[in-house]
């Protein structure tokens, strides 16, 4: 089963063996199947995102790989170790940030890093502590106690703790949830830095935009299953649409069949002086559309083109609109509002 995995994940680099291999993973709670037989393969050095709405099974999946939950079926290998029978070895080579930021009170940022270095029995020298604080941008908060840190700073500290043992893989469970847009962007950069330092990153998120701009590959999870797994570009490309071009027009008519004949266009609608084109090649189609309009003496207004997003992928795969997660997160503080894609 496990040996078949590289074929199951075509984008995994064939040269490096996957650092995580998951096959047939199942977790049930009573009659509820939280994780319904998933296969995963994560290559060394990538930022791998597990994307899905709340309740899709992302955290359960992550926590089974981390060894926090016992799977009901399936196999998990992390860095060559069996996650169930060799959990001790696995814990030594992974770093974990849990969904809830769990930090001891009454300790400073530097003391916490020192403590965790001690628990892993790895280098906890002031130089090492400073290097980790630098990596997550908390150097000036070195002597601040945990309760003096903002939510974003705690998340960063929590990530620093996940890196104390220079792990092969760092698991970050919804690292940006509850952060304001600026803090979220800062954290993305931190995560890229982590990967640049040689650590594979596996993260969960329910933010489509985050998965799209941050992750090398994304597994879209819904109702306990992985419904797609590829690079964000690959997922979007699989829709067969590069972009949507929309415009209103005055002074004539642009028949749908003429629009559909434009180069690159895969589909078109034209109604009440509104047109919409789906295209594989936005530049080619746009040039041809402008040419067509000027020859027909038509004036185009409100011309705009939009890239399809992972939301469109989710819609195409599930037939459901991707939920606005903020309604499900009423307890989140106000600055946590998600950046709307325009």
């Amino acid at each position: 089963m496990v040996s078949e995995l590289p074929q199951a994940a075509p984008d995994a680099s064939p040269s490096a063996p996957p650092v995580i291999e998951v096959a047939g993973l199942v977790k049930r709670y009573g009659n509820f199947v939280a994780v319904d037989g998933i296969d995963l393969s994560v290559a060394e050095g990538e930022i791998f995102g597990i994307l899905g709405p709340n309740g899709a099974g992302k955290t359960t999946t992550l926590e089974m790989i981390e060894g926090l939950r016992q799977p009901d079926a399936g196999e998990i290998r992390v860095a060559g170790f069996d996650a169930i029978s060799q959990s001790e070895q696995v814990r030594r080579v992974i770093g974990v940030q849990l969904q809830t930021t769990a930090l001891f009170d009454y300790l400073t940022a530097a003391e916490l890093i020192e403590l965790f270095a001690g628990l892993y029995n790895v280098d906890g020298s002031p130089e090492r502590v400073n290097a980790l604080l630098d990596m997550v941008g908390l150097r000036e908060k070195r002597s601040a106690r945990v309760d003096e840190l903002s939510g974003g700073q705690r998340q960063r500290l929590s990530i620093a703790l996940a890196l104390v043992n220079q792990p092969r893989v760092a698991f970050l469970d919804e690292p940006t949830t509850g952060l304001d847009p600026a803090a979220r962007r800062d954290l993305w950069q931190t995560i890229r830095d982590v990967r640049a330092s040689g650590t594979t990153v596996v993260l969960t998120t329910h933010h489509m935009e985050e998965a799209e701009v941050l992750c090398d590959r994304v597994a879209i999870m819904d109702r306990g299953r992985i419904i797609a797994c590829d690079t964000p570009q690959g997922l979007i490309r699989s829709l067969g649409t590069a972009a949507t071009i929309q415009a209103s027009f005055v002074g004539g008519s642009l028949p749908a069949h003429a629009l559909r004949a434009l180069p690159g266009v895969t589909d078109s609608t034209s109604r009440d002086s509104q047109l919409e084109l789906r295209t594989r090649d936005v530049q080619q189609s746009l040039v041809a559309l402008l040419d067509l309009a000027s020859r027909a003496g038509v004036t185009l207004a409100d011309l705009r083109s939009a890239q399809p997003s992972l939301e469109d992928v989710f819609l195409a795969l599930t037939g459901r609109q991707y939920e606005n997660e903020e309604t499900a997160e009423a307890e989140q503080p106000a600055p946590a509002k998600r950046l709307r894609r325009r």
């Binding site: 981390e66 992974i94 849990l98």
Partner: peptide, 13 residues
Amino acid sequence: ERGILRRIKVTPF
């Protein structure tokens, strides 16, 4: 309650 025990559980300690 605050998940610190789980956090310890994912370390080798």
